[in-house]
Design a protein around this nucleic acid. Structure first.
Lengths: 237, 237
DNA sequence: CCATGTGAAAGCGTTCACAGCG
DNA sequence: CGCTGTGAACGCTTTCACATGG
């Protein structure tokens, strides 16, 4: 089909906004494709990719169709080509410099975590108010006092930040980050933060994840008291 | 309305399954209610609660309606009563014993993270294959060799586990955990794991969160090249 | 012949708008 | 009068099913 009159996306050429749900799955596909590549798979079907990413095959095809037509009917997708396309679509064909604010327990772990740098996110500076931490190293980042935030952020061309401070300090830190020009923030503090609409913020609350698990554990317990046993009907999901 | 013929939930009495999206928000409400309680608020409206939890007021009312009718029309919700109900609904009126597998960078941070114990999740044992780590302490947990997993899990009545191993080891660890009787798992390894349907598993991939932010940063960059500037119309979210 | 790409259907989740009640 | 609780509308996501084309 030429020119594609559909309302969704201008198929060819540059990046148009994808559905949010699709964006969340692209990193999964990227990882699955990298593994398939390591396994010397030149070509991969939506079925195979779905299995490796833990999702439905129809979903894979629908998601990938938003990026354009990179598959071959009757064959599948070229693993390496598709990986490059997904990578480009996610904006990962460059490096991002990341600031880490809060060098306590969680902050130290994040600073030492190798998974970030492996995927192009360099933690190039850390910040903390505790004078005993300032000047120390955290992975390849130096720990600066919070007062230096704006200067260092601009000097090192930092565009993203991780907030790993106590909840009470998080809003103030966020405001300072935004003043310094940061536009993407990942918040680990267990508190709801307010931010101007031009800044993109996501939240990770580790305890919340456990509480969700707790709910299902709890419900399962209640069920067991009612139905006694229940052999698995091997329903997917 | 008595007996409620609606299809959703048997309003009164014990816990019926809530929509998944609602379950994910209950921990937010719980936190907001705890803060409101600290602020000496005896009563709280859906509007106020929505503001503190960062969601829409109609959503708060809809979510809370699944738990039953705990509000007073024209007034709002009793802060403390509602907090107790949400807490009970999430199954948090008990403690959970948690195992931590993998005592490397991330595992050490998780073991020292106080947010877990504060909300009733005690990390009571850690496991690692590295002999130099075995025997050391991690918060209040001792580090055991992986071979002791089943014994310690049963001995300490552990029902939940955190997987913080390298990706390559995660599936094997998961299988061992399930054999030992674990039914809830939080996986931090960047890999898709397969598990029997009776086990509840959630995944946290820190790098994925950054990649999602990267996408929006990337798209924003492309937009800026097109539309030059764009003053905020102060649209929510 | 086989797997993609995609309209159409079905399923969920969110938001609206207002009836109902303290 | 104000705020809850909720049917109904809306929009987004997922899944189905099949025409399409290498």
């Amino acid at each position: 089909m030429p020119v594609a009159p559909g309302p969704a996306a201008t198929a060819l050429s540059a990046s148009r906004s994808l559905p949010e749900a699709t964006v969340k799955r692209l990193p999964l596909y990227l990882q699955a494709l990298a593994e398939a590549n390591d396994d010397r798979m030149v070509t991969i079907s939506s079925d195979e990719l779905a299995g490796r990413a833990g999702v439905n095959a129809a979903q894979v095809r629908k998601d990938l169709s938003y990026l354009g037509s990179y598959g071959t009917r009757g064959v599948g997708y070229n693993t390496e080509l598709l990986r490059q396309q997904v990578n480009r679509q996610l904006g990962l064909n460059r490096e991002y410099n990341v600031a880490l604010v809060g060098a306590g327990n969680l902050g130290q772990a994040l600073g030492h975590y190798r998974g970030f740098a492996q995927r192009g996110f360099q933690v190039v500076a850390a910040f903390d108010t505790d004078p005993s931490l300032v000047g120390s190293r955290l992975g390849r980042a130096e720990v600066y006092p919070l007062a230096d935030l704006e200067r260092v952020v601009r000097q090192k061309h930092i565009t993203m930040a991780l907030i790993a401070t106590p909840a009470a300090a998080a809003q103030d830190v966020l405001d300072k980050l935004v003043d310094a020009g940061i536009t993407s923030v990942l918040n680990f503090a267990p508190i709801v933060l307010n931010v101007a609409p031009h800044v993109c913020m996501r939240k990770v609350d580790l305890a919340v994840e456990l509480q969700i698990l707790g709910y299902y554990e709890h419900v399962r317990g209640s069920r067991r008291a009612e139905v006694a046993t229940r052999a698995s009907t091997a329903s997917g999901r």
